[in-house]
Design a protein around this nucleic acid. Structure first.
Length: 592
RNA sequence: GGGGCCGUAGCUCAAUUGGUUAGAGUACUGGACUGUCGAUCCAGUGGUUGCGGGUUCGAGCCCCGUCGGCCUCGCCA
C-alpha cells in the first residue's frame, strides 16, 4: 500500500498517528536545516515538515525536490504550533513531521504550475492538459460533472428507466447537422456516420416496448464551434412511452429539483415556469431568454406608424416593426462612442440597419439626434410606453420582426452583462413550449422541421397541418437555464397518416422518406406506442451548475475552435496504406 | 465563408504610440536561513517580439500575407 491517507484527510484528531502520504510537490519552503513541503493530491494539500529531528538523508532528499515531483512521505501527525494553523487548508490544523521521504518520480520543469495565479493561455493549457487538469478548479469541475451524472443515473433508475447503449457507428441521415463520417473497409465507398443524437434508436426502443429509456450518450456534429458547442458532446438522452408533454417535463422537473437541492443547496418550486415560444419571442426576442433579469422588449410599431420620422414610419408601413428596450439608469454610462459601438454590434452581428436611441433627461424629455423628427407628444408617448425614467437609455431597432428579435436579444444580453443586471451565481430554470412545427426556408423555398420531422403537432393544431403550417405548434419543449438551451425534446408522431402529412409538408415524398428513415417507418407500423422524450446537454448543465462561461472547462479533453485536440494533435494525416485499405483518395492535401 | 480581439523571456504582462543595449513579476539555476504557508534575503541564466514579406535612416509598434488561440454572425433538423 503506497499511502495510508490522502492529502485532504488529516485533522487534529489524527495527532500522534504515523501516516504515509503520496502526491505532488506543490511548493517547498526551504529554511536551511528544515523544510516545509506542501503536498498536493486531488483531495487536498497537507503540509509536510522536514525538521531538525528528521534524518540527514531525508533532508537531503527534500533539498532535491522540485515542483510537481511525485513523492511519498511517512511521518507523524502533529498539531501545528499555536497560532500557526492555516485556516485556508482543510488540513491546516496539523502537519506531518517526516520520518521517511522518497521521490517516486521527478518532474521536468513544468511550463506552468497548477497553483499559479494567472491562468496561462488556453492553447498552452490544452497542449499540457495533464497539468491543467491538476488545477483544483478543473478537479472540482470534473467532480461536479461526475456528481451530476451519478444523480441523473440514480434518478432515472428510481423511476424505472433502463439504460441502453446505442450504436456509435450508424447510418448517415442527411437532414440536420453535418455528419462525421467513418469509412467502411468491408464496404468500399460506404460510410458510417457518428450519431448526432440517438434520436431514432430511442424511438425504436419505445416500439420495442422498453418504455422508459435513458442513456448518457456521446453525440457528434461537424459544425463550427462556440463557447457552448463542441463537435463531440454528451447528452442525457431520455425517451418514455404512453406520455404527453407534461409527463416528460414533469420528469425533468423532478430531476432538476434533485440536482438543485443536492448540488446547489437550493429548493426550487416545481413545476418549473413555462412560457410559450411566441411569448418568449415577443418579450425577449429569443427562444432561450435569460430570465434572471427583466429589460423586456417593447413594441412601438403602432406609434411609429403614426410618427413623422421617416425611418420608423416607413418600416411600419412595410410590415416591419419598431421595437426596443429600456436600460434603466444607463444614459450616463453609455456615451456617444459606446452607443456607436452598440450600433456596430447590431449591424455587424445581427443584421440590423441601425440603432435609434433616446436618453431620458432630468425633466423627463427625450434627447437624441433624431428627437427633432418627433413632436413632443409623441416623445412623451414613447417614454411612457417604456416606463422610462430620467437617466434611462432607450434603444430601438426598426426592421423586420425577425431582425428586431435577433438584434434586441443580442443587445439585451450584452447590456445585462455590462450593467451587471443579474447575480452570476444565481440560476433560473424554465420551459419554453409550443414551438412552431415548421420554419420557412426562403433559400430553398420549402418548409423545414424546426425540431425534427417526427415531432408531433399539438392536438388542437392538427387541422392547421393542411391550411396553416406556419401557425401549427408542436408538442415541443426546451429547458432553458440562464439564457442557455440546456435541453429540448418533443412528443413524437406515432400515427402514420400524420407522419405522411408532415413528410409531405417538408417536401419528402414517400420514396424519399422510405429511403432516409425506412427502418423507423417500418418500426412504426408494428405497434408503436405514443411516446416522446428529451435530451439534456450535460456539458452545458455542468457549465451552468459550475458557474462557468465555456463548455471546454467542463470536458476533460476538449477541442479548440478549429476542432483540434492540441494535446494529441488530432486530427492527423494517416498512412497511405490505411487510405488504400479504405478505398479513399484525398483530393487536396492540407498544407502542413 | 464574414466580423472582431490577441500572439514580446518557461509563464503572466509592460515597453512613453516609429527612436539608444526590449523591462517587471513569477518560474528556473546557485547561495543564505528551522516555523514557513504567494516564505524571505543575495546573485545569476533566460528574447528569431508566432512566421514570411514590405514601408522607413530606423519596426515589438505601421502595411500585406500566413499560422495559432479566443469571442461572434452564418451554420448547429
Amino acid at each position: 500500500m503506497y499511502r495510508t491517507h490522502t492529502c485532504g484527510d488529516l485533522r487534529a484528531t489524527d495527532s500522534g498517528k504515523t501516516v504515509t502520504l503520496c502526491g505532488w510537490v506543490d511548493t517547498t519552503r526551504d529554511h536551511g536545516k528544515g523544510m516545509f513541503i506542501d503536498l498536493r493530491d486531488r483531495f487536498g494539500v497537507t503540509q509536510v515538515c522536514v525538521t531538525p529531528d528528521s534524518s540527514a538523508a531525508d533532508l537531503a532528499v527534500a533539498k532535491e525536490l522540485g515542483r510537481e515531483f511525485v513523492i511519498r512521505a511517512t511521518g507523524t501527525v502533529h498539531p501545528r504550533p499555536a497560532g500557526q494553523e492555516n485556516p485556508r487548508l482543510a488540513t491546516g490544523e496539523i502537519e506531518v513531521h517526516v520520518t521517511s521521504l522518497a521521490i517516486l518520480n521527478p518532474s521536468a520543469t513544468p511550463p506552468f504550475l497548477p497553483g499559479q495565479k494567472e491562468l496561462p493561455g488556453e492553447d498552452l493549457r490544452l497542449k499540457h492538459r495533464y497539468l491543467d487538469l491538476r488545477r483544483p478548479k478543473m478537479q472540482r469541475t470534473l467532480e461536479l460533472r461526475s456528481a451530476i451524472i451519478k444523480r441523473m443515473r440514480d434518478y432515472f433508475e428510481q423511476h424505472r428507466f433502463i439504460d441502453v447503449e446505442t450504436p456509435i457507428l450508424g447510418r448517415s441521415t442527411p437532414e440536420g447537422a453535418r455528419d462525421y463520417l467513418v469509412p467502411s473497409r468491408v464496404h468500399p465507398g460506404s460510410f458510417y456516420a457518428l450519431p448526432q443524437s440517438p434520436q431514432l434508436y430511442k424511438q425504436i426502443m419505445m416500439v420495442a416496448g422498453y418504455d422508459r429509456y435513458v442513456q448518457v450518450a456521446r453525440c457528434f456534429r461537424d459544425e463550427d464551434l462556440r463557447a457552448d458547442r463542441q463537435p463531440e458532446f454528451t447528452q442525457l438522452d431520455v425517451e418514455m412511452s404512453f406520455v404527453d408533454s407534461d409527463d416528460v417535463m414533469g420528469m425533468i422537473d423532478g430531476l432538476m429539483a434533485k440536482l438543485m437541492r443536492e448540488l446547489k443547496g437550493v429548493e426550487i418550486t416545481t413545476p418549473l415556469p413555462r412560457m410559450t415560444y411566441d411569448e418568449a419571442m415577443r418579450r425577449f426576442g429569443h427562444d432561450a431568454p435569460d430570465l434572471r433579469y427583466g429589460m423586456e422588449l417593447v413594441d412601438i410599431t403602432d406609434l411609429a406608424a403614426a410618427c413623422d420620422f421617416r425611418v420608423f414610419r416607413g418600416t411600419a408601413d412595410e410590415g416591419g416593426c419598431v421595437r426596443g428596450l429600456c436600460a434603466i439608469g444607463a444614459a450616463e454610462r453609455y456615451s456617444r462612442k459606446l452607443i456607436d459601438e452598440l450600433t456596430e454590434f447590431v449591424r455587424n452581428d445581427h443584421g440590423a440597419k441601425g440603432l435609434a436611441w433616446f436618453k431620458v433627461e432630468a425633466d423627463g424629455t427625450l434627447a437624441s439626434p433624431i428627437a427633432k423628427n418627433f413632436d413632443g407628444a409623441m416623445l412623451t408617448r414613447i417614454a411612457e410606453r417604456f416606463s422610462a425614467k430620467p437617466g434611462d437609455l432607450i434603444l430601438l431597432v426598426a426592421d423586420a420582426w425577425e431582425v428586431t428579435c435577433r438584434a434586441l436579444n443580442g443587445l439585451r444580453r450584452r447590456l445585462a452583462a455590462e450593467l451587471k443586471l443579474y447575480d452570476p451565481d444565481s440560476m433560473h430554470l424554465s420551459w419554453i413550449v409550443e414551438f412552431p412545427m415548421f420554419d420557412w426556408d426562403a433559400e430553398e423555398g420549402r418548409w423545414v422541421a424546426m425540431h425534427h420531422p417526427f415531432t408531433a403537432p399539438r392536438d388542437q393544431d392538427l387541422a392547421k397541418l393542411a391550411d396553416d403550417p406556419k401557425g401549427c405548434r408542436a408538442k415541443a419543449y426546451d429547458l432553458v437555464i440562464n439564457g442557455y438551451e440546456a435541453g429540448g425534446g418533443t412528443i413524437r408522431i406515432h400515427d402514420s397518416k400524420i407522419q405522411q402529412q408532415v413528410f409531405g409538408l417538408l417536401g419528402l415524398d414517400e420514396e424519399e422518406a422510405v429511403r432516409r428513415f425506412g427502418f423507423l417507418l417500418d418500426a412504426l407500423r408494428y405497434g408503436a406506442p405514443p411516446h416522446g422524450g428529451i435530451a439534456l446537454g450535460i456539458d452545458r448543465v455542468v457549465m451552468l451548475f459550475g458557474g462557468l462561461d465555456n463548455i471546454r472547462d467542463c470536458i476533460a479533453f476538449p477541442k479548440t475552435q478549429r476542432a483540434m485536440d492540441l494535446m494529441t494533435e488530432a486530427p492527423n494525416t494517416v498512412d497511405p496504406k490505411q487510405l488504400a485499405e479504405l478505398a479513399i483518395a484525398v483530393l487536396r492535401q492540407s498544407k502542413s
